[in-house]
Design a protein around this nucleic acid. Structure first.
Lengths: 224, 224
DNA sequence: CTCGTACACCGTACGTCGTACACTGTACTA
DNA sequence: TAGTACAGTGTACGACGTACGGTGTACGAG
């Protein structure tokens, strides 16, 4: 039996790096990244804590692998459409994935080496921009700008406790206004009132900035 | 002796919430947020670990207070200039502060309630936009867009191990290219080469996106 | 001058964490 | 059948956050 077949059998019945990391992501999703410990993870897998170290060198490596799984979930830019539609797809997908795994945002800051899925993603991303007529340098700029917007948006969204217009209205009345004296924070009070009055939907906020950024980038590409 | 005077004396000699939090920020800056423990913090202050709990209810509250100190360091928008210059000042200051305290970025995701400095900052920020002629709704959009860009930029920058053109060139040759097979990652290879050839300076990247975003927002304000 | 009270501060202890290390059992090779 | 490799584990160590029950000193009341 070859080493590969052994690996195959092992992954059918017992543990495997894939299984460990996937379960870790699930645990972090449901309990938060602070609730993810090697012992709890092992418990969820029906194994002893130390068994995990046969598939992961350390918890740090586990976290790196978890981040790369998150990147795997992000759509790659489709090749058959115009660059703006493609980027919109990627950006939207990224936002959704990061909303699903909010712990990933905070983790990205501290880990420096990108995983394979991350690299594949960057390659496809710049490929799309280059094909659309951006120079290598401008594509780098666009890359930074778009990613900054998406990550920053996800970061802000993760620290907000509401997702819909109704939840927002509720929070404004029950939580925000009580702690915002109108004489000290006139503009925030005005904003809060205006948002509630307009039926402001936080879900649409993302599109606004994204469209603005894409439109601003359009004239920078050397049209084919 | 009034309670206030007592507090004054105490802050001259012994501990105080201010001293605790400031030292915690210093520790997180030098050792990373993982290196910040109540015991080590107490040690740095020449006190016992449990003494800290007279000034801070829990480590979570300490982290919240640390974040608010970071917001205190960010410049408020000056009132005497045009809105673009003001926003540029704020954005640049935010970027610098977050570069000084990279741990703060990852912390923002998990803590939901904004501190007083954060609120003051938001108020001044929207005030500036409203005075420049943006509607309350558009000001909210601009707020999201600008903050997303700045936070996202800081997040990406924090996970990069280089700050100057020279360091970049060194990293490209020694670390990136060796792990990027040209046939699998043609565009990343091209980009890396183009950046090094152009003497690309990462420090200037921030300005590019910021200017683009500001210019894109300009037509959205109802000119006075 | 003494006592009671308040409060800043701390020592100890508990449960949990990551993980080093030495150990099982099982499966396959020779 | 003996040997080897390796998946999986049990125990133990040092560090963590923090509950709890102390100390000591400062000060107003008697």
């Amino acid at each position: 039996m070859s080493a590969k077949e052994q690996r195959q059998v092992a992954s059918d019945a017992g543990l495997s790096k894939q299984r460990v990391v996937v379960e870790a992501v699930r645990l972090a999703d449901s309990e938060g990244v602070d609730g993810l410990s090697m012992r709890r993870l092992a418990g969820a897998l029906g194994a002893g804590a130390m068994s995990l170290y046969h598939y992961v060198a350390s918890k740090d490596e586990l976290l790196d692998a978890m981040i790369d799984i998150v990147f795997e979930e992000i759509e790659l830019p489709p090749e058959e459409t115009d660059w703006q539609s493609a980027m919109r797809r990627v950006a939207t997908s990224t936002r959704q994935v990061l909303a699903r795994h909010p712990w990933a945002i905070g983790l990205m800051e501290s880990r420096t080496s990108p995983g394979p899925a991350n690299l594949r993603h960057r390659e496809a991303f710049t490929a799309c921009l280059r094909r659309a007529g951006f120079s290598a340098l401008t594509a780098t700029h666009a890359n930074w700008l778009l990613n900054s917007y998406v990550y920053g948006y996800a970061l802000q969204a993760a620290s907000l406790p509401f997702d819909t217009a109704d939840e927002l209205a509720e929070m404004v009345d029950d939580v925000y206004l009580p702690q915002l004296p109108p004489d000290e924070f006139p503009y925030l009070n005005e904003s809060a009132a205006a948002l509630v009055a307009a039926g402001y939907d936080p879900a649409e906020e993302f599109t606004f900035g994204l469209d603005l950024v894409l439109a601003a980038l359009e004239p920078l590409r050397a049209s084919a």
